[in-house]
């Protein structure tokens, strides 16, 4: 008798697991769009679920009059994990920035760019995030960004550390100036988004963001200490006052998506200092 009951429970469990329910991705979509499903690896957004991002991607495709293909976002903590995701078949395409995609393809010939028209024009702004009470630091950073835009030094950094970097090579080493007795700004970097942010073989931080920090140190006459931190702990470190500044990306196009889609509570964002296009990459056939 007990064996029969156990078998009945097992059969019921199997029925549930094999899927009596509806597919969560199939509601309110054009039937044509269901024909192809592309699993898209993305960096985790703090204030949006994968489902919300799926709807956002759907609307962007509709707006661009492209053939709507159902992109199902899968969130990852960093680019490394996205690469592992695509190499293991968990996702079909990964979403990153143009500069990062070019660096990746130059260093790993298994990848190629996806030429989708509908992502043209999509871009993220990069800015600094500071503690929301730290108005003075935010003002200082905004002033430096404005000054650097005005005198062309920001564009020069973009050329030197992103555009003119030899195909896939690490950007030049950066020396951050030191000032005796000056105040210190502690900046958290992840080192996982080359050529914007990476760690050289000698363990020193490098890339466009670090070059920008060196310029900020010079202009503010303050010491900048760069510490490396896991991307998942950046916001916690900032809110807990363990660090003063982190790098952040925000979404500029606000038609369908909240601009604070990736902004945690308790932090304030500076003016953007760089914009990069969204690029999709996939494994070569």
């Amino acid at each position: 008798m007990r064996v029969k009951i156990l078998l009945a429970i097992l059969c019921t469990a199997c029925l549930f697991m094999t899927g009596c329910g509806s597919d969560s991705n199939s509601d309110n979509k054009d039937p044509d769009s269901q024909a192809t499903i592309i699993k898209l690896g993305m960096i985790t957004h703090l204030n949006a679920s994968e489902k919300q991002m799926e709807e956002y991607l759907f609307k962007v495709q509709e707006r661009s009059h492209a053939k709507v293909i159902n992109h199902v976002p899968v969130f990852f903590d960093n680019l490394n994990l996205m690469q592992l995701g695509i190499e293991s078949g968990k996702v079909d395409v990964i979403s990153t920035y143009k500069s990062v995609a070019e660096y990746l393809i130059a260093n790993n010939n298994k990848y190629e760019l996806v030429h989708d028209d509908w992502i043209k024009g999509l871009a993220d702004n990069f800015c600094f995030a500071v503690h929301e009470d730290d108005d003075a630091l935010k003002t200082d950073l905004n002033k430096v960004i404005k000054d650097m835009e005005a005198d062309g030094s920001l564009d020069k950094l973009v050329k030197d550390y992103i555009k003119n970097v030899d195909n896939g090579q690490a950007p030049p080493k950066v020396d951050i100036p030191k000032f005796d007795g000056a105040d210190k700004i502690v900046v958290g970097v992840t080192g996982d988004l080359p050529p914007l942010d990476l760690i050289l073989p000698d363990n020193s931080p490098a890339g466009f963001n670090t070059a920008l920090l060196a310029e900020i140190a010079k202009r503010l006459n303050r010491n900048v200490e760069v510490v490396q931190i896991d991307s998942g702990a950046r916001a916690a470190a900032l809110v807990a006052d363990q660090i003063d500044v982190i790098f952040w990306a925000i979404v500029p196009a606000g038609d369908f998506l909240d601009k604070n889609i990736d902004k945690p509570d308790g932090i304030a964002l500076s003016e953007p200092y760089f914009q990069d296009e969204i690029a999709h990459i996939k494994l070569k056939n």
């Binding site: 680019l79 660096y103 996982d192 080359p194 050289l200």
Partner: peptide, 27 residues
């Protein structure tokens, strides 16, 4: 410990994977 700004073996390995874009071999 990478979550609390320490560069240990795992952090170094992750840094190398990010720089070289070869996560599988590095891991």
């Amino acid at each position: 410990v990478g979550y609390v700004t320490i560069t240990d073996l795992t952090r170094v390995i992750n840094n190398i994977a990010s720089r070289t874009m070869q996560p599988m071999i590095t891991i």
